[in-house]
Amino acid sequence: MPRTDTMRLRPLSPGDEHVYAGWALDEEFRVANGWPERDRDGHLRHWRRLIEAPPPELIRLAVEVDEEVVGYADLHGLAPDTRELGIAIGPSSRWGQGLGQRAIKTALTYGFSVLDLTRIWAETHETNTRAKKLFDATGFIETGRHGTDTYRGEDVSLVQYAVERPY
């Protein structure tokens, strides 16, 4: 069967927790994404809660390529016209294949067309060069540098980005 390489977003569903909990065993992925150290059962419980009863401010969608889960995209917030975007591609062996850039573009399309957002913003750590390159490559504009957070064991500055809905 020929490979179509089709990316899509879909709601999280039962069974996805096994994929995401498996990524927690990938130390590079876990550390880069700030996931806590837990045993596999702890990660399974966490993901089951998100699937069964997501918080009202979080839209978390599975990112699939040819029906295989390769990540997730978050659109977070309660404002009617603005949300914060976050993505994760896993496991780390999938990094560097263009999936992050495609996931961001797909999430932007979803946010602007399905949710009718006018602005999508994102934030990353100053030292996260991979994320900064992704935001630059997908049309985000740096809007500020406010706050600090721990990333890979260091206290670093946060960089904010935004993109407006194209008209």
Rank of each mutant, 00 (worst) to 15 (best):
Q101W: 04
H125D: 13
S13Y: 00
T109E: 13
Q160M: 10
T109N: 09
S13E: 12
A103M: 07
L25W: 00
G100T: 00
M7N: 01
G42M: 07
P55D: 05
I120H: 02
R94I: 09
A162H: 05
D16V: 09
D149K: 14
S93P: 10
R119T: 07
E123F: 01
Q97V: 02
T106Q: 05
H18K: 11
G34E: 04
R60E: 10
R49C: 05
F135I: 04
E68N: 12
P56F: 04
S157R: 14
H146E: 14
L134R: 06
A122G: 09
I120R: 04
R130S: 09
G96A: 08
R10V: 05
N33C: 13
L25A: 15
E37V: 15
I104S: 03
E84W: 08
D149I: 05
P14N: 04
G96T: 02
H43L: 12
R8V: 11
T82V: 15
I89G: 02
L75Y: 01
G86S: 10
T148A: 12
G90P: 01
D41H: 12
G15K: 05
T127I: 12
V31G: 04
I141A: 15
T6I: 15
V31Q: 12
D116K: 14
A24V: 05
R102T: 10
E52D: 15
P54R: 01
E68C: 12
G139P: 04
L25I: 00
I89C: 06
T143Y: 08
R8L: 15
V156H: 02
G153L: 06
L99Y: 09
I141K: 15
L134V: 08
R130Q: 07
K132L: 15
I51A: 06
H146V: 14
I59A: 07
T143A: 12
H46K: 07
V70E: 05
T106Y: 00
A137H: 11
P36Q: 00
W35R: 03
L85R: 05
G86R: 09
R119V: 06
L85G: 05
A62C: 03
P11A: 12
T148Y: 10
L61M: 11
D5M: 15
G77N: 00
P80C: 07
A162N: 04
P14G: 04
V163C: 07
P55A: 08
L9I: 03
A53H: 11
I51D: 01
H18P: 04
I120T: 03
E142I: 03
R83S: 06
R38D: 06
D66H: 08
L99V: 06
P36W: 01
G71Q: 01
T143F: 09
G147Q: 09
L117Q: 00
V163M: 04
E64R: 05
I89D: 02
G96K: 09
R145M: 06
I89M: 07
E57W: 11
R40K: 14
D41F: 12
A62V: 02
H46A: 11
R60M: 12
E68T: 10
